[in-house]
């Protein structure tokens, strides 16, 4: 089984993605330097955002190989478009994840044209860095989550990916999606309620409560 994350009852063990990895001031300065062609600034932005873009891709594609490809494509798009970025519109993260969102949409459109679907995660593809022996009974797999989120409407799934895979705030998620914050909160609530139901109570669910 491809196990991807530990999950414990202890709140300290709840693993949300890091929310703030760099100060807003530093991010702004770095983005401005990148816009003027500073390659070190571009590299910094890449280092800061690449894991989150990758997680966003994994949340949507559930396949690490395709997620890797999509991650690269997103950053190449960013390179080509960063000169057009303007602060007055949206935060940089929202701008970047709009690009990611468009790439995901493109990916699924192409997959539909090919008649192929995204494949499941091959065994061993995920780089699992935790102690398998002690946490094997306590995890929810990425595949389980992917199957559960597949049952959500697109808008809810997008909110879940941006909030829990990327770690965007409600405000930034709203700006990324072009929605109001209240709308995002409602979508988040519906999605979490549905996931809770699927993961805990439905037949074939992963019996989350027993693992907690």
């Amino acid at each position: 089984m491809a196990l991807v994350a530990s999950f414990r009852n202890e709140v300290s063990g709840l693993e949300f993605p890091p929310s703030q990895f760099v100060s807003p001031e530093l991010e702004r300065e770095t983005v401005d330097r990148a816009r003027s062609g500073d390659q070190q600034a571009l590299a910094d932005l890449y280092d800061w955002y690449m894991p989150r873009v990758y997680r966003y891709a994994v949340a949507h594609l559930g396949n690490s190989v395709e997620a890797e490809d999509l991650t690269e494509e997103v950053f190449l798009k960013v390179l080509g478009a960063i000169g057009d970025f303007r602060w007055r519109e949206v935060p940089f993260s929202s701008w970047l994840f709009r690009i990611a969102h468009n790439q995901v949409a493109t990916h699924f459109r192409r997959a539909a044209q090919r008649g192929g679907a995204t494949t499941a995660i091959p065994e061993g593809m995920i780089d699992w860095r935790h102690d398998l022996a002690t946490t094997v009974e306590e995890r929810i797999t990425l595949e389980e989550v992917r199957r559960a989120t597949e049952q959500l409407p697109d808008a809810q799934r997008e909110v879940i990916a941006l909030r829990f895979a990327v770690g965007l705030s409600i405000a930034d998620t709203a700006k990324t999606l072009g929605k109001r914050e209240g709308n995002v909160k409602a979508l988040q609530h519906k999605a979490v309620a549905r996931l809770q139901k699927i993961l805990i109570t439905e037949p074939g669910g992963v019996e989350l409560s027993k693992r907690l």
Partner: peptide
């Protein structure tokens, strides 16, 4: 449930 999802995504 939210934390479980976030944990699973934390790859």
């Amino acid at each position: 449930a939210a934390a479980a999802v976030a944990g699973a995504y934390n790859v």
